[in-house]
């Protein structure tokens, strides 16, 4: 089980990786979403605000009305943000549940795929 602080640390790294990747920024330039992540084993929420492909902010808790809700175990969230986990595989196995349009689900997965293509 990953603690809230661990996930926030992972999110900090995720933000840097995303925002520093020119290819990803170009691909997601018209993608603006408010995303809620729910760690189902700890009950913690995290909110991430993406504007034109750039992660503007992230915080603990659920703020605003989201476009996307991702629910999984805290360990999966942590591994996903560190780029150690293939979200598609976990999604296809039913371990990661996403409430969003199909387009947004693919765009979310694309972040990991572009930053860490070997995952």
């Amino acid at each position: 089980m990953a603690a809230k602080e661990e996930i926030l640390e992972a999110l900090a790294d995720y933000q840097v990786q995303c925002n520093n990747n020119a290819r990803l920024r170009r691909m997601q330039r018209d993608w603006s979403k408010l995303i809620h992540f729910l760690s189902e084993d700890t009950g913690d929420y995290f909110t991430m605000d993406v504007k034109n492909g750039e992660i503007m902010s992230y915080e603990s808790g659920a703020s605003g009305t989201p476009d996307i809700i991702v629910t999984t175990l805290s360990e999966n969230l942590c591994d996903m943000f560190w780029g150690d986990l293939n979200p598609s595989q976990k999604y296809l196995d039913g371990e990661i549940k996403v409430k969003a349009t199909q387009e947004d689900i693919m765009r979310l997965d694309a972040i990991t795929m572009i930053i860490w293509p070997d995952v």
Partner: peptide, 17 residues
């Protein structure tokens, strides 16, 4: 992405995703 098909099928368009 799940390594069932060759990786090339997971290529995304750089502009349209």
């Amino acid at each position: 992405r799940d390594n069932v098909l060759p990786k090339v099928f997971s290529k995304l368009h750089p502009d349209y995703a």
